[in-house]
Amino acid sequence: MDASLTLETGSGFWTPVLLLLGLVVCIVLVLIIRAFGEKSYKRGTEQTKPFLSGNAEGNKDAMHVRAGNIYWGFLEALKGYYTPTVGAHTGDVTDYLIWYIGVMAVVLGILLVGVLL
């Protein structure tokens, strides 16, 4: 058992420590570039307030994009898949038991046919 930093995946290799070292180098570079940036920035002043083309900033609560709005288009486009799939999740225990018996019958059928073949 000779453990190393590199995981052999069968067809390739994976060395997370190398990736992390690369990330560290990138972060250092970013910080160096940042150090050359504008130094007159002051927190809590007009500089840091949102600028919406001169319009007043709206209510913070109303501006947050809620979970229900995210991927709305994706879900709408796949309505044909989602309508029956969501519908199958009835929350009714009787349905769960029917699924259970049905799946057991299918598994038993496959196993028995598998042996007969």
Partner: peptide, 26 residues
């Protein structure tokens, strides 16, 4: 074979695999 099928289905249901997963989110 019947015993294998029954055992498999029972454990598949308890490990929360589709299509016997419905109680898992509940």
């Amino acid at each position: 074979i019947v015993a294998l099928g029954i055992l498999m289905t029972g454990f598949v249901m308890k490990c929360g695999a589709v299509p016997l997963h419905m109680v898992t989110p509940d």
